[in-house]
Structure formats: structure tokens, C-alpha cells
Design a protein around this nucleic acid. Structure first.
Lengths: 160, 160
DNA sequence: AATTAAACTGAATTTAATTCTATAAAATTA
DNA sequence: TAATTTTATAGAATTAAATTCAGTTTAATT
């Protein structure tokens, strides 16, 4: 069985649902909620980590608190050969770049970028993107307001 | 002083940096790393939560493990009046929709959607988006491969 | 049906979280 | 400036959780 051909049961799903909403929920609480012993929960969580079902635990920080008020999406066309992703890896190294997606149709990427403000974005495009070989063109979409931003997955109710 | 005009110092930044990478790092470890008492760390973390600098703690779950293999971005044009966001809130209620952004320029939104597969996307567009009044048109971009996907912010090294 | 492997419970132990008191430092006010 | 108040911290004591482990149950395999 491959790394990710994991079989999760109903209990795993419940644990994931809880952890997805609050990664600091303690085993005792989960155990209480699921009517099991804490040690059993601990074992399952460890297994979920091992199986790379749970990838990591993040604190979600308020961008406004760090004065990172501008969110942008940038479409980037490159001279990357199909299948190669040289530019993508360079983009991924930029700290302000939160996401890099190889997208269908346009020989390009879609990236998500967070900067202080418009000046920060201009700066990033000029001084960082501008120095990357292989970028042919960019098209930038500015976010005026974010109504929802989560990475929560839809977790099945029933065992598959 | 307003809710989010928080003043964070160097120590807060260090805590945020640690927590952003591993939200389950315990106070004892943070204290050790920063050369402080665990109780002091606890107090600061609580304060960061109160001040809504730390918004929540998430477990990042592997989409593949839950068989959610297709990521798409959809541009949605609506008849929403500028400033009103009726459609946006309806979009935000859809579990498969992870993000809803009000974007400049197109009287529309950009949403990020995760589905099992292409069939799931079609289904969502037909049966869920299709039933929302006020959507004029959609343009869908399929993600072939994600090279980077994080929500980590750039945390200042120096106190602002 | 017997054997093996996996998951679980519950008690014991280790470790961390939390509370609290006493200081120290910083900010505020008189 | 000096006095006062507020805030942050350390460190000890306490409470609570994580972790370990032996024994049991359950499920899967042979």
C-alpha cells in the first residue's frame, strides 16, 4: 500500500474534523467527545501524522496585525517547458508568495502574494519577480476584500 | 487604541514565528528557546489570542488523503452592487469553497474551490453555483499542480 | 479454529499547563 | 523628579494533560 492510500475510518474523520478547527484541542477533550481513552486518541493522531494525513499544525495569524494589508493574485506566463517548473520553484522561495500553482491553459502559474501595501507589491514585482529569468508577462489581480479564507477540507461523514 | 492597532515587540514576533511553523510547540520549548519562563510565554500567547493577532490553530490536512484532488480558481461576475456582497456571502457558505475574494476591476469575485475531481467541480458549478441568483458568468482555472501552498506571513525581524 | 496483528482501556508516570505570589521594569501621574 | 500605577516576568506550587505500558478485546489472517 502506497504512502497516501490510507484508509481512514469514521473515528479518524471525527478527529480530523476537530483538529482542523482547533489544532490545540487536547487528547483528553477529543477522547471525551468520542467516548474513548486519551491514549487511544494519542495513538491515532500520531498515526495520522505518520501517514501524512495531518501535514502540520499552523497558527493562523492576522495579516492586519502584521500590517500586511494587500493581497494579490498574479498570473505569470513563463518560458518554462511543459513539465519543467524552474520558475515555479524560484517563485516558491519568495516569502511573500504564499501559493504557487501550475495552471492549465496558459503555460503559466497563478501565485498568491501578500505585501504591506501597493508600494510593497510594486517593489516585489520590480525587484524580485523582475529578476527571475523566464517570466514573459504578468497579470495582477488586486483583492479589495476577503470574505472567506480558510484551508479547511470537507471531511466525509461516512467511512468511504 | 483600536482592536488591531496592537504593538508587538521582538519577543512577540519570535513567538509568532515559532507558532506559525508549529502551532503545537509547547510553552516550555518556546520558553527555552527565548530564555524566558514558561509562564511568561503562556501570558503572551494568551494576549496574542485576545488581541486577535493569533486567529486560530489549524491542522493542515493532506487533500489527497481525503481524495480531494482537484483545485480550481473561479472568477465570478455578479450583479452585486458595488459595496454589497450578497453573492459573496452565499459563496462563502459553500464548504468546498475555501476562499472568496472581492477583486478589483471586474465587478466580481475570485474563489478557490476544492473538489474530488472534475466531476465534482462540474457538479458544484451546476448544482450549487448555478442556483445562486446574481451570478452572471464564471471563468474557471484548473490547477494542474501546486508547488507551494501556505498561509505563513512574513514576520518582521525588528520591532516596527 | 488457531494465530497474529491492531486497537483499545485504564493505571502509572512523566511532562506541560496553569495559577499565584513576589519582583522588577516601565509608564503614568502628581 | 518622586510617587503611583500598570505591565511583564520569574519561579514555586498545583492542576491537568501527554505519554508509557501491561493486559484485554477485536479484527484480520492463516
Amino acid at each position: 500500500m502506497g504512502k497516501l492510500e490510507v484508509s481512514l475510518d469514521h473515528i479518524d474523520y471525527q478527529i480530523l474534523r476537530i483538529m482542523q478547527n482547533n489544532a490545540r484541542t487536547n487528547n483528553a477533550d477529543i477522547a471525551r467527545e468520542l467516548g474513548m481513552a486519551p491514549s487511544a486518541i494519542l495513538e491515532r493522531v500520531k498515526k495520522l501524522e505518520q501517514k501524512e494525513v495531518i501535514l502540520q499544525y499552523n497558527a493562523k495569524i492576522n495579516p492586519v496585525a502584521l500590517d500586511q494589508n494587500l493581497l494579490s493574485f498574479i498570473f505569470i506566463k513563463t518560458s518554462d517547458i511543459i513539465g519543467e517548473q524552474g520558475v515555479a520553484y524560484l517563485l516558491a522561495e519568495i516569502p511573500e508568495v504564499q501559493e504557487v500553482h501550475d495552471i492549465a491553459g496558459d503555460d503559466g502559474y497563478l501565485i498568491k502574494v501578500r505585501t504591506n501595501d501597493a508600494a510593497g507589491l510594486v517593489d516585489l514585482m520590480r525587484n524580485t519577480l523582475g529578476k527571475i529569468e523566464g517570466i514573459i508577462s504578468t497579470r495582477t489581480t488586486i483583492v479589495l476584500e476577503t470574505v472567506k479564507e480558510e484551508q479547511k477540507l470537507v471531511i466525509p461523514t461516512q467511512t468511504a
